[in-house]
Design a protein around this nucleic acid. Structure first.
Lengths: 156, 156
DNA sequence: GCATTTTAAATTGTATACAATTTAATTTAT
DNA sequence: ATAAATTAAATTGTATACAATTTAAAATGC
């Protein structure tokens, strides 16, 4: 069976990452439910709490999501009253996302979510941070800011 | 801004894992296209190449996916001729998944996919394996084989 | 200055994920 | 043995992801 080691499920980095990602998302769910947010909506709000009044394009570059995912998600968050979507007067192609007061206020409730989640999961913040750095290092290797056809995106 | 460090996007393990998972999936896509498989179909086939003739329940325990995801996916793989789905005669509740010859043969084509993918991404197998182990270690902490209501699942 | 190209969102279509419910079969308790 | 509880898939409904296309606006080339 040695010759199958390369395609053994447990040897796949891709499966480990994929499974952990879904597991963490599930672990967040009860806490995010208190905020009335799904996981992707939460990630989007994290980005907006740091950097408000950005175009969908920039938000997508930050989250590595395209308009196909973001447009319906942002419309939902708009309906929920957390943000507004408006065309940029200086470039009508762009849609600027701006947090409402309600959206800004939600940040206070979100502040202790990561800490509570890791505490409940029995993971120290140091362990989480060590893994995060390891993953970030891999990410820079795997994605030197996009390949060939995406090289035009200088993102920032 | 120190007080916002806990909810800074770049500090979130969850976002790092989520982003890397999607990035790796995208990197696999061109190789999996040669096999005619999507990423989740590929992961499912990896599990089946190791362990054939299993119930959907067992496959789900291995992949951490439920029947809501697996049922349509397995029906698709059945339509593609890679496997068969049949009720277990000794327990009509269970559906047994068995690879066809075609499904078994696909394994040969899949054998060099991980190696080619990491080579192209500029990641050594050692680096990938080190991260995989780090993630697996976190997974055992975060998911000691499911919580409370899932404790009844002894899986194997 | 205007046709061509590029760009940003939105849309379309396919494939997941997963909670919650339903259906049918099996097991358990009495 | 049979009602009640449990279990395995399937189904339903919602929310992503993302490739590919479309639409409208802005930038570019000549």
């Amino acid at each position: 069976m040695q010759r199958d080691a390369a395609i053994s499920l447990d040897n796949q980095l891709c499966f480990a990452v994929y499974a952990l990602s879904r597991e963490i998302t599930k672990r967040y769910q009860p806490y995010l439910k208190e905020l009335g947010l799904t996981y992707t909506q939460y990630i989007t709000m994290l980005a907006l709490w740091e950097d408000d009044r950005v175009a969908v394009k920039q938000l997508g570059a930050r989250l590595l999501l395209d308009s196909g995912t973001l447009t319906p998600l942002l419309k939902k968050l708009e309906t929920m009253g957390h943000l507004t979507r408006s065309r940029d007067p200086s470039d009508e192609r762009s849609v600027i996302i701006a947090l409402t007061d309600q959206g800004k206020k939600l940040k206070e409730q979100a502040r202790d979510v990561p800490g509570r989640m890791f505490c409940q999961a029995g993971v120290t913040l140091e362990e989480a941070d060590a893994l995060r750095k390891h993953i970030a290092s891999m990410m820079t290797k795997v994605q030197p800011n996009g390949i060939e056809e995406e090289l035009k995106n200088d993102d920032l």
